[in-house]
Structures are given as C-alpha cells and as structure tokens.
C-alpha cells in the first residue's frame, strides 16, 4: 500500500514538474476560438455600376462621384466621347457595420434615387463558419424628366421604379472575390401592355487583385429572354480599382450609360462589338463622422468598473 502511495506521489510530482517546464504558458489557458470574418472582398461598395458585398463602416460617410463619357465610337469631332458627360453624385452612410443607406442624383433621366443594403450573412471561419456573404439590396428611383405625354393624366407613382437584389459573394482568396446577383426590377409604368412591369435578371461580378493597391474588376448582367424590347442589351463592364489612401478610384469601360440599377440593367443600349463603349470613372472619398474607437473605449471602461 505504501509503495502505491509513494508511486502515486512520485507521478504527481513528475506531472507537476513537466507542466512547469515544457511547452508554452499560453497553452495552460487553452485556445479561445474566435470568428474570423472575411474583410475587403472588394475595394469599394460598387463593383462598377453594381453594388458589391462591401458596406461602408458604421459612422462613415462616402461621397461618390460617378462619371461616364460618351461613346468612344462617336468620332474625332466628339473627341471619342470625352465631350459628353453624364454623372451621378451620391452620398452613402453606414448606420451600422451591416446596414448602409444612400441617396443620389443622376444626369440620366434627371433621376433621384435612394437605396439600402443590409448584410444578412457574413463570410467567416473559426467559431462561426459561413461560406458566403449575403446582402439584401433595395433601391427606388424617381424619373424626373418631363412627362412624355403631358396631355393625359399623369401620376407621381408612374415615375417610380424599384430594384431588389440578393448579393451573394465569396472571397475565395486574398485577391479573388466573386459575386452572383439575382435581381428583380419593377417599373410602375411601362410603354404598353405587352411589356412586363417586372424584369428578372442575374448578374455576375468579380475582382482580381494585381497588387495590394490595384485590382481588375468586371460585371455582367444577363436579363432573362423575352422581357425587354429589342433595342436593349445586357450590361457588361470591366475596369480597374486604384486605391490611394482615403480615395478609391475606379476606371472602367462599359456599354451602359446610366448608373442606377434600373438604368443599366434594363435600359442599356450600347453594343460592345459595335464599339458603343463608354469610358468612365467612379471616385469615392470617405469621411469618418463618428469615432468608433471612442465608443469601444467607453464600453471597455464601463466593463472594468
């Protein structure tokens, strides 16, 4: 019996010593598993025209200038489209890290628009595992042009169009991200009965980083057959994102002139093969309105006392 006891004690001592000498002290605490969310899948909240799965952060105001020139095939007299200018000015704001809202005003159709985008699922690994990011996007646009038929009774509601999108995205690697965008556009007023009010489309988009500050982007919207009259085609845009500190500069070529959802998805008339290409750029400048750090410091202090 005594031998057993001695042996037991001996082992205990050995055990205690072994623990003190070998391995990392941190191992004693064990690993606390954390959730690692994918960040910066895209440089900007827009791929080119299309919304991306990125949001502006809470308390950040993003001033966006989007500009499209005329068609490059319009000839030397038009300086290959550079004489014509079409813009959308926009202000986006992050209410939370997952909810952003924005307003804008476009040259095309004298349009005023507003939208919100909510991040429902966030791609993550670790404690919580989620393969994709899923955002809900909804926008409303008011066409403020003069009525095409001023003599008949016109309603304000006829000016409105709505766009609903699911933004499904995944950051496959540090430099590669892809997105799918099932879309529905609802137009309150259409030219005649044979044209449907609702248009269904699906978009695909992506970005490939070349260096840490330069990326190539592209997006394509396919409108399902027999919904639009023949003059309209699918929107295809390719571009580069250049990042310089607080700015993101996006340069691109696109066959769409309008920059709002309803305009580029359902009203693109340019054909790439005919050279109906618009050069364009988006400039984004962010301003931090709310100091996120201050609140986190306050929260920490409250926890400590």
């Amino acid at each position: 019996m005594r031998y057993i006891a001695v042996t037991c004690l001996f082992f205990l001592v050995i055990h205690a010593t072994a623990q003190d000498e070998g391995g990392s002290l941190l191992d004693l605490l064990g690993e606390e598993e954390t959730t690692n969310y994918a960040t910066a899948s895209f440089k900007s909240t827009r791929i080119i025209n299309s919304p991306s799965i990125e949001n502006v952060a809470e308390g950040v105001l993003d001033f966006r200038i989007s500009h499209r020139f005329g068609r490059v095939n319009s000839g030397a007299q038009e300086f290959f489209g550079l004489d014509a200018a079409t813009i959308r000015l926009g202000l986006d704001y992050g209410i939370t890290d997952r909810l952003m809202v924005g307003i804008g005003r476009s040259t095309v159709q004298k349009a005023v628009d507003g939208f919100f985008k909510y991040k429902l699922l966030r791609q993550s690994t670790g404690k919580k595992n989620m393969p994709i990011t899923l955002s809900l996007y909804s926008s409303m646009m008011i066409n403020w042009q003069d009525w095409p038929e001023p003599d008949r009774e016109n309603y304000f509601s006829s000016r409105l169009t709505y766009t609903y999108q699911l933004l499904i995205g995944r950051k496959f690697s540090k430099s590669t991200s892809l997105m799918l965008m099932p879309t529905m556009v609802h137009r309150n007023l259409v030219p005649n009965k044979s044209i449907p009010n609702d248009v269904f489309a699906i978009g695909i988009g992506g970005r490939q980083k070349i260096t840490s500050r330069l990326a190539v982007t592209g997006e394509y919207y396919y409108v399902f057959a027999d919904q639009l009259v023949e003059i309209y085609t699918n929107s295809l845009s390719i571009g580069v994102d250049i990042e310089t500190g607080g700015h993101v500069f996006q340069l691109h070529m696109t066959n769409s002139l309008g920059m709002m959802d309803k305009q580029y998805i359902t009203e693109t008339t340019g054909k790439w093969l005919d050279g109906d290409i618009h050069l364009g750029f988006n400039i984004s400048r962010v301003f931090t309105i709310k100091d996120r750090n201050k609140e986190k410091v306050k929260k920490k202090e409250a926890e400590d006392h």
Binding site: D20, L25, E32, T34, N36, V56, R292
Partner: peptide, 26 residues
Amino acid sequence: TAILDTKTGNLEFSLLMKSFNFKKAL
C-alpha cells in the same frame, strides 16, 4: 491574452491583429 508565472518569471502575450480598433474604418 497574457499569462505570467511568478515562480519562473516567464511571461507570454498573444493578440489578434484584427482586434486592433482604429478611429477610421478604412
């Protein structure tokens, strides 16, 4: 995360880089 062994004087720290909070999100 930090741990200190007062007997040996050994000291270890560990942190996640993504947990650094900046004033500006960008």
